[in-house]
Design a protein around this nucleic acid. Structure first.
Length: 616
RNA sequence: GGUCCCAUAGCUCAGCUGGAUAGAGCGCUACCCUCCGAAGGUAGAGGCCACACGUUCGAAUCGUGUUGGGACCGCCA
């Protein structure tokens, strides 16, 4: 039975810092680790160094801003292995022609042993072709780093708080929460991988009217447990999930509460029921392999002066006043009348109207504890905040950002990611969710049918602000039309190769693969794969900068596609197969395959999906 | 009325702090399995990136406006 107490005494918070050392490799608090080889970042360093030489040599003026200089893979492979826009970006501020800059830059870069050809193209692009030895280095770097390949120090260990799920503790989690949970958890892992110090946090809305409704609903189930007819009135929560809570209440209180007025039992029953709901939510999250670092309680903000502190700070900044809001334009609410309220001057920070923090009866609005909670996060020293909300909370984005900007004196950026809805399908038919009809699809329903791995991957195959279709049949389909299967299959194929090679007496130990002569991996299908492997560290940084974990899922699909393509080529060209009679050649091919598997494994790790060793 | 999100191939969607001839899957068309790696493979067709103007050496990407779709909009949380 429920053991969870929403508020740890005195703090309003439960943490699990320091007890999570057992996380998987990729989820270790990694900001102290050294970043691994990032070919594109390395080459950019070389380009900037060459530009510095040109400044020293007098070709370029000093003090140029190189922030917009990029080194990236060209869309067309005919353009070489990498391209830089340096000449075009710098032409105007330097007062020179792009091609002139590019020509000299090309001459300087040609001295780099990694670069075999640097040629000017188009309006001033500089296309670079790399020495094949570079690709061998990439393969070896991936093998050596394993699941840490692609780790970055982009975040420099700064403290980021990712608040997600934060479902009301009034019932089980449904599919919408599931997507938010997967997104938030994957984003947190991604940021950790990119060198941020990440805290996963859940805000428990246990301070509002809805937990009183929960208490009254649970009380009816308590009466039911005592043999009375429950009266689930309109507005109460009718779900069966409260029946065991009623029974637990009976076990604790016997029949002693039955004839008592609400004022006697409300607080106790509310606390009991809330704790039970939070335990259920924790269990649901555990099914999805989501573990929070911190649970913070809204209720614990009341009566401790925290709300008053936060609003007092706003007041000292002259951002709180008593006033009357204009009625909203267009359709007027039925019961609209002018009222004086306590308002936060959020318009000073880009909001459209000022927002009430106190109701006309003097009690706090929902916004007030939210302000206090975010103030608390700022005070705990976070450098960056991320909130993951359902798309229906879009209206709160501006006011929340305004509050954080005001309270942190613009020091702490707040990014709010809105999660669009999930549309459920079964056999291609829309699957209507309805609490009344009992077809209420919970997180548990989804995970029990589809499994945590499939659910997690599929939920990340769409951008967070795009609606997502979830078809129970399609996500379980074992075909290349299913991205989950496709990526897992690629990893399993490599695992299969390693097993087969070992059976054939080939040494596939890490040491042997590290020593393999990779200079023979020159087929275009092999080069396509190794170039994709080289791109992985860059993709991690792009995804982390945008707070968009779905990019990882798409990248994994692409690299899996490259592996499958190479595999298929082996059907027609036996020389491309991984397992060969010549054990030296075989080791080289297998090293490449293994490096690919390493990237898939690391990427799946960020998404929270276990890589498959075999498909069954 | 206002705010936010969205608009890319027939369909579902990617598209990098702006970069070269805009990509993938499905569907469609044509080829390809006696066997050695087909829970398939190869190739192809398919686009006014909603529209207009602007910024820029360069715009699907940034800005303004228009059209169409969705979400939200003071004592609900």
């Amino acid at each position: 039975m429920p053991r969870f107490s929403a508020a740890a005494p005195g703090s309003g918070r439960e943490t699990r810092r320091g007890v999570d050392a057992a996380r998987g490799l990729w989820q270790g608090k990694g900001q102290q680790r050294k970043p691994k080889m990032n070919l594109f970042a390395d080459m950019r360093v070389a380009v900037i160094a060459a530009l510095d030489e040109m400044v020293a040599g007098g070709t370029l003026p000093a003090g140029l801003d190189t922030a917009n200089v990029t080194v990236e893979p060209p869309r067309d492979p005919l353009h070489g292995d990498m391209a830089t826009n340096a000449a075009m970006v710098l032409a105007k501020p330097a007062g020179l022609k792009p091609r002139d800059i590019a020509e000299e830059l090309a001459a300087k870069l040609s001295a780099d042993p990694r670069i075999t050809l640097a040629e000017v193209a188009g309006p001033g692009f500089l296309n670079l072709r790399l020495d094949p030895a570079v690709w061998a280095d990439v393969t070896r770097a991936a093998l050596a780093a394993g699941n840490d390949y692609g780790r970055s120090d982009l975040g420099h260990g700064i403290k980021v708080n990712v608040e997600f799920v934060s479902a009301n503790p009034t019932g089980p989690m449904h599919v919408g929460h599931t997507r938010g949970a997967v997104f938030g958890d994957a984003l947190a892992s991604l940021l950790d991988f990119a060198g941020y110090d990440v805290t996963r946090e859940y805000y428990i809305n246990d301070g509002g009217a809805q937990v009183n409704v929960l208490a009254r609903s649970a009380f009816e189930r308590y009466r039911e447990a005592n043999g009375l007819e429950p009266e689930i009135r309109e507005g109460l929560y009718p779900g069966d999930y409260l029946i065991p809570v009623g029974e637990a209440l009976k076990a604790k209180y016997g029949d002693s509460l039955l004839n008592q007025p609400e004022s006697v039992w409300l607080d106790d029953v509310r606390e009991f029921a809330t704790a039970a709901m939070m335990q259920m939510i924790r269990d649901d999250l555990a099914l999805l392999n989501v573990t929070m670092d911190v649970y913070s309680s809204e209720k614990a903000l009341y009566g401790t002066g925290k709300i008053e502190d936060a609003l007092g700070r706003l007041e000292s900044l002259g951002l709180i006043y008593e006033g009357v809001l204009e009625p909203p334009k267009g359709k007027l609410p039925e019961d609209w009348e002018e009222r004086e309220q306590t308002l936060f001057r959020s318009t000073s920070f880009g909001d459209d109207v000022d927002r009430p923090v106190k109701k006309s009866d003097g009690s706090w609005t929902y916004f007030a504890p939210d302000i206090a909670y975010h103030y608390d996060k700022i005070e705990r020293g976070f450098d960056q905040l991320i909130d993951v909300f359902g798309a229906d909370h879009g209206g709160y984005v501006k006011r929340m950002k305004a509050a954080v900007a005001a309270l942190s004196n613009n020091r702490v950026p707040l990014d709010i990611k809105l999660i669009q809805l999930v549309r459920l399908f079964k056999n291609g038919e829309p699957f209507k969710m309805s609490k009344r009809a009992g077809t209420f699809v919970t997180l548990r329903d989804v995970v029990e049918q589809a499994g945590a791995d499939v659910t997690r991957f599929h939920m990340l195959t769409r951008k967070n602000d795009a609606a997502l279709d979830f078809d129970f049949d399609k996500v379980l389909e074992q075909s290349k039309d299913n991205p989950v299967f496709y990526v897992q299959y690629a990893h399993a194929r490599v695992a299969s190769v390693l097993r087969k090679a070992a059976e054939a007496g080939i040494d596939v130990s890490p040491e042997a693969l590290a020593k393999a002569d990779l200079s023979g991996n020159t087929h275009e299908a092999e080069l396509a794969l190794v170039k994709k492997i080289a791109e992985w560290p860059r993709l991690v940084e792009i995804a982390a900068r945008a707070n968009e974990p779905h990019r990882v899922a798409f990248f994994l699909y692409e690299i899996a596609s490259d592996l499958h393509a190479l595999w298929n080529r082996g059907n027609e060209e036996p020389g491309l197969r991984f397992v060969q009679d010549d054990s030296d050649i075989s080791a080289a091919k297998i090293a490449l395959a293994k490096a690919c598997a390493v990237v898939i494994s690391a990427g799946l790790g960020i998404l929270g999906v276990k890589p498959a060793e075999e498909m069954r």
